[in-house]
Design a binder for these strands. Structure first.
Ligand code: NAD
Ligand code: NAD
Lengths: 214, 214
DNA sequence: GAAATTCCGTTACAAAATTCACAAACCAAG
DNA sequence: CTTGGTTTGTGAATTTTGTAACGGAATTTC
């Protein structure tokens, strides 16, 4: 699906992910058609917001009717580029890495972890969830062989830069970094930071702030 | 630390978390003083942004000098309300829940998981990381007994609402929901959604978008 | 089949966030 | 003590994001 406008707000992308989640729930409940008003309520956003977000990508609704749930899910997925599978490499098979490898939802949502890499000789060769843990040095070969496009970093923070270097050198296109460390990559590589503590900090701040307001 | 202004942007809170991360790295490297310019570069933001974000909470810098790294970390922590420990309850001890329980960083950062709850009779009584898995029904008693304030939901999505209800009923103040499901809670309860797929969707979108731009 | 109703897409407007720009504050050197 | 070189904190300008309003397309009702 072609993008109409030049720049799309980061916040719009985040909301589209929420829309998919809520729409999938509607679908499971057997709802076929939904208005922007009803969807907005379920997502805790303004209904104009939804119509505007969708307008960046095309016209998906029917005036006087609303949006067909299944069609809208398909359209949003196409807009986000998740109407196809993405092959992923996971670097760092520790606690978190294993939890991700065992999570079936990644495959179901089209993010297929096809390679698991570690540098610990005791771990290399071990099977996790039907996948053999491979030495990080083999990344370049595996990236080419398996067509890996997205790298997932779940190493300790002090090793995150090295993992990123391996991934970039191997020709990966994007990186999702779960380690709490900033990493430097060439600017054509897309980089996302996932920091759980952001959420905890925000919660702590608001809980204390709300208390003070009383 | 008193808050100067009424409303503080959500984005500011998120950035403060990044500042702490980067400042901690500076500290480890032995840097004592840092200018907003240098911090900005390391965080990939504008330097006025940093000064403005900090100004919401007070005046932490010295003109002509910059910010004392350790002092600034302390000040930001106080501003966010993480200058003390927060007792947490984890509901749903599966793959992800276990990874979180084993993660030492939570305790180090002041988010201490003091209770692990599950509803699976086979899991109740099991020890994980020195903690006994307890039946969810005991939440109200444990919340009072241990002074638990933040609930972490790591149940399957279809059980997330029930877990939230338990937590709210038990008197928790905030919830961090790792399950991909919207939940309804009274508005005095602070709720944060952690959805890994947001990051994957954003990566997929940008990788494809950047390719198209060529 | 006309009128009333619903609800999308878009434009116009308002609000919020970000960046700019500069006075005031600080330090170091002479 | 003064001067010169920095760097903060903040009001003003700019950019971005979100909301409201409304014309028009589709459906339903009578
Ligand atoms: N466990 C959690 O719940 C959790 C939560 C939030 C963030 N994190 C972050 O995720 C990361 C991983 O956490 P964890 O608990 O799984 O740690 P872990 O120590 O259990 O696992 C890290 C793994 O990375 C491997 N590794 C180290 N250097 C490597 C390299 N250069 N190349 C490939 N593999 C390498 C190690 O051998 C190990 O298997 C950490 O940065 C942590 O801060 C973890
Ligand atoms: N595993 C991952 O890497 C991962 C990644 C992203 C999101 N998630 C989400 O996190 C959640 C947990 O994932 P998981 O892989 O750990 O699943 P899991 O099935 O391994 O664990 C879920 C646990 O919750 C318990 N549970 C169910 N209902 C409960 C209730 N009412 N009260 C208390 N406990 C209850 C189950 O007994 C089980 O132990 C899911 O919603 C999943 O979508 C997981």
């Amino acid at each position: 699906m072609a993008v109409k406008s030049e720049h799309i707000p980061k916040a719009t992308i985040a909301r589209l992910a929420t829309y998919i989640q809520v729409l999938s729930e509607f679908k499971r409940e057997g709802t076929d058609v939904v208005s922007s008003e009803r969807l907005a309520e379920a997502c805790s956003v303004n209904s104009s917001q939804i119509r505007k977000d969708l307008a960046y990508f095309g016209e998906f609704g029917v005036r006087g009717v609303g949006y067909y749930v299944q069609d809208l899910i398909t359209s949003i997925k196409r807009s986000l580029g998740i109407d196809r599978a993405w092959n992923c490499a996971l670097v760092g098979v520790g606690n978190l890495g294993r939890a991700l490898l065992r999570h079936r939802e990644f495959t179901r949502k089209g993010f297929i972890i096809r390679g698991a890499f570690d540098c610990d000789p005791y771990k290399i060769g071990e099977m996790v969830e039907g996948m053999e843990i491979v030495c990080s040095r083999q990344l370049p070969a595996k990236v080419k062989e398996l067509g890996l496009e997205i790298g997932i970093i779940t190493t300790p923070p002090e090793r995150a830069q090295r993992a990123a270097n391996y991934l970039v050198g191997a020709g990966i296109k994007g990186i999702i970094n779960f380690a709490p460390a900033r990493v430097a990559v060439p600017k054509h590589i897309h980089l996302e930071y996932v920091d759980f503590f952001h959420y905890f900090y925000a919660a702590a701040f608001h809980i204390r702030f709300d208390e003070q307001a009383d």
